[in-house]
């Protein structure tokens, strides 16, 4: 898995409201190229909203976000071009059910990157082999297990050669025995130097893989630091009580 350029992320003074409901209340976060950051926190604290802001699936109410050295929140930014460099994997896989596994990967290669059909198929084959699913290229998504679908979704995102990957609770919808296959792929990706922002409930994964853990609650970052520090000696009462519930 070659990563061409990895991007860092800079989030400055990010606010996001849905109607009257202010979900992000001033987020500042800097992520270095190649860094793996896990975001943890209680349900509804704004983790997904923060992550989805990083490829503008949510449009910030105010504040700015830089991917690499480009400000994506600046007016006139080419959103589609930007997104083709930012991979995202969802909790619910979101594979395209009317397409084969291979086509799921080639469609954006052809339509967004302008690859020829033959070249796109080569890339798809390579990515599928990396996630151990070469034999499923011509299957339909609904004939795959959840774990296999999520591995295809990761392969699909990686095929675009992103400089950063966003993961939103990608194992939460999986049966426990299927979680490991997906996490192993993410662990490998991290080792290869991909910048990763991972919203997760998998504290084991955060501990093992994250360079930094960010704890969010009620729309703010309450505490952040290396996993060992954060998990072993949490400074805030909120993180202590959160950890006592999830660990």
């Amino acid at each position: 898995m070659t990563t061409t350029t990895t991007f860092g992320v800079r989030v400055e003074g990010l606010h996001k409201s849905f109607g009257q409901n202010e979900v992000l209340k001033g987020i500042d976060l800097k992520i270095e190229p190649g860094e793996v950051v896990c975001i943890i926190g209680p349900s509804g604290s704004g983790k997904s909203t923060l992550l989805r802001s990083m490829n503008l699936l949510e449009v910030p109410t105010s504040g700015s976000i830089y991917i690499g050295d480009r400000e994506i929140t600046a007016g006139g930014a080419d959103i589609n071009e930007l997104r083709s460099h930012v991979g995202m994997v969802f909790q619910s896989f979101n594979l395209f059910p009317h397409m084969t596994v291979e086509r799921n990967i080639t469609v954006s290669l052809e339509r967004v990157k302008g690859l020829s059909s033959a070249k796109a198929k080569d890339v798809a084959a390579a990515r599928l082999s990396e996630v151990g699913l070469s034999s499923k290229a011509s299957s339909r998504p609904f004939n795959l297990s959840g774990g296999q679908q999520q591995r295809v979704a990761i392969a699909r995102a990686l095929a675009m050669e992103p400089g950063i990957m966003l993961f939103d609770e990608v194992t939460s919808a999986l049966d426990p025995e299927l979680v490991k296959g997906v996490l192993n792929i993410m662990i490998d990706l991290a080792k290869r130097g991909m910048t990763m922002v991972v919203v997760t409930h998998e504290m084991g994964f955060a501990r093992q893989v994250a360079d930094r853990v960010v704890f969010m609650d009620r729309g703010v970052i309450v505490e952040q630091g290396p996993p060992d520090e954060l998990f072993i000696s949490p400074r805030s009462e909120r993180l202590r009580s959160f950890l006592s519930e999830v660990l």
């Binding site: 898995m1 774990g147 025995e177 490991k180 192993n184």
Partner: peptide, 13 residues
């Protein structure tokens, strides 16, 4: 579900 055996998956394990 088949075990993820290939390249990355096994390295990751």
């Amino acid at each position: 579900e088949e075990p993820a055996t290939k390249a990355i998956a096994s390295e990751g394990a």
